[in-house]
Design a binder for these strands. Structure first.
Lengths: 103, 103
DNA sequence: TTGAGTAGTCATAAAAATCTGACTTATTTT
DNA sequence: AAAATAAGTCAGATTTTTATGACTACTCAA
């Protein structure tokens, strides 16, 4: 029996991993909306024209995994699930603002 | 005869297009190296471990098209082609620095 | 109990990004 | 003349990302 160890490509560019956290077709838009307040799945689906469930779901999951978003269940009926920026996530706001500035 | 017009998805997130200019497997690394001085193709191929010609070529072309890099022919023998950051490109440096800071 | 809303997952398909290896063109060195 | 270096291009293959439509599970209102 042999054990395969996936050789991770080690990052040489420090900004790369951070950029990746925000890159993708829907992540910047999701992030921007999250800056204005908590998000719900159905709301995103309505507000982001052209996005589909699967891709939003994947994007939200990745934003959670990288610690930029968290979700919580709101226990009013009907139950809602809200995604909101973490403190870590908020540290990225200036980067986005600076980018917009360069636009 | 009909004319097909590709319906461009209009950006709703202002930072998205800017982020895209820097995203991809090799662009952040290329950009970072360009910050330290002009680049040559063969040099990149040597310095960026794991990168292949084709991908670097595509990345360089996109960085040119978005106006972050320019290239010039150095007329010493043997002839060299150098890629360097444009003024526009330099305006992205603070963004990268800020990202590194968040690392 | 039927239908609507919310929040997804799943298998599969299509599109986009990246990789591989062979080839090109021009100059330079041996 | 042959081999080496520089800067790529090209066709085709593989991988990753994104999209589609059907389906699940739970709650609520009529």
């Amino acid at each position: 029996m042999t054990t395969q160890i996936a050789m991770e490509e080690k990052e040489t560019c420090p900004a790369q991993a951070l950029l990746k956290m925000l890159s993708g077709k829907w992540k910047p838009e999701i992030f921007r909306l999250a800056m204005n307040g908590p998000l719900r799945f159905s709301g995103l689906l309505r507000e982001i024209r052209g996005a589909n469930k699967q891709s939003l779901s994947v994007a939200l999951k990745e934003l959670e995994e990288t610690g930029l978003l968290e979700k919580t269940t709101i226990k009013i009926k009907p139950l809602h699930i809200e995604y909101y920026l973490t403190n870590r996530g908020r540290t990225f706001i200036p980067v986005l603002q600076q980018l917009e500035h360069l636009g």
